[in-house]
């Protein structure tokens, strides 16, 4: 089969994976169909409950990109402060880094004679 990718340890069959996914989705839908159907649409029964607070307007409830992963960014603040400082946006630094890499490789490959 042209879909089966053999690797040194085994194989990967995407079509089989898709079949497994379809079975899993079918099973999930089956369980869902066993659920309560007697709720009334467009009533308070289907509205979100925010501890009794009024629901904010939809446009105000959108979480902006800057606010996503706030915790992740906060916990890695020290890493990001360093890495952001490294990305200066200054083309002189870009050239300097290229020269630096070439110099390190020169030391390792040419002078130290590693190769």
């Amino acid at each position: 089969m042209q879909s089966i990718l053999t690797t040194p340890s085994g194989y990967w069959d995407p079509l089989m994976w898709l079949f497994g996914l379809a079975v899993a989705i079918g099973f999930a839908l089956f369980i869902r169909s066993l659920g309560q159907k007697s709720y009334n649409k467009e009533t308070d029964q289907t509205k979100p409950f925010i501890s009794g607070n009024p629901e904010v307007s939809k446009s105000e409830s959108h979480v902006k990109a800057s606010n996503l992963y706030w915790g992740f960014m906060e916990s890695l603040k020290s890493y990001y402060s360093k890495i952001m400082r490294f990305h200066t946006g200054n083309v002189n630094d870009y050239v300097l880094l290229l020269v630096f890499v070439i110099a390190v490789m020169f030391l390792i490959i040419v002078l130290a004679g590693v190769i």
């Binding site: 490294f86 200066t88 870009y94 290229l98 070439i102 020169f106 490959i109 040419v110 190769i115």
Partner: peptide
């Protein structure tokens, strides 16, 4: 693979690694 060949290798590796955007020459 003498001294000059090694210098040429360093220059080629550095230049193409930069052009393909590898760290730390990726900022462009």
């Amino acid at each position: 693979f003498n001294f000059i060949d090694k210098i040429a290798l360093v220059l080629l590796l550095g230049a193409f690694a930069m052009k393909c955007g590898s760290f730390p020459m990726h900022q462009w």
